[in-house]
Amino acid sequence: MPEPTRQSPTALGLDPRRASWKAWLLLAPLLVWLALFVLLPTILLIVTSFSNRDELGRVVYSFNWDNYRRCFDPTWLSIFWDSIVYALLATFICVLVGYPAAYTIGRASPANRRLLLTLVMVPFWTSFLIRTYAWISVLSQEGLVNSLLLSSHILPTPLSMMYTPFAIVLGLVYNYLPFMILPIYTSVEKLDNSLVEAAYDLGAGPLRAFSRVIIPLTRPGITAGALLVFVPAIAMYAITTLMGGGSNPTIGEVIQNQFTRARNQPFGAALGVLLMLLFLVCFFVLGRKKNSAHPV
């Protein structure tokens, strides 16, 4: 059984092997899958985004830039911006709320660890729509919070919480929190304890140890979690509609509308392609940061 070393993996300078034909063979299923069900649909989507449509909304293949030109109308840009703000806010709160929990779970005994991890996921085995509707019963004017506040005479009139930006962010945080906790947990779980102890031995306080040692070591988990929360949150529409009442349209709703109401698939596809480009940029920026942060 090899002793765990205290060096970071890159410090050892181990080069990945050149791929042999066996490695290629093993990779083949993944490659075929990527080509058929990721690459091909993406190409179809890009082709659609340059096309036209007929009266019934069927795609008429052609080539023009009109759909992209329309995307840069100030209306859509401001909706884009709002969606980014909501998603960023939700991601940030998820890190704040999720990190200490993930850390505690990751430091528990193996049996407790698995138990707690499962407990994080269990609520998510009910439909997200039912969960979101349950929140309505908490937040609405005749809901739980308001009846408690009113009956205990803390407030004279009910608070209006449903159908506000607060409700949207709460809905997003509730639904994506596990996607933050899981990857941070994975990072914390493999955190080398002796590094942290060394920090204490060298006289670091808990805050210093946390910010200088624990956070940098668990950064891959935070990055992964941020991606897992931010990306779906930006394009989410069902939760934002249910909790926000639809008066704060998000880019996900706009895209959805092109397919389910406006009969304008090409424009929806164009907005979607732009959204994906934005994600790719985030992905590369975060990826680069992750790599440059490594040599501790």
Binding site: T75, S78, D82, S247, Q258, R261, A262, N264
Partner: peptide
């Protein structure tokens, strides 16, 4: 759809 979405957002 575009008209209504525009006014909604603003």
């Amino acid at each position: 759809d575009e008209l209504v979405t525009q006014i909604k957002a603003k």
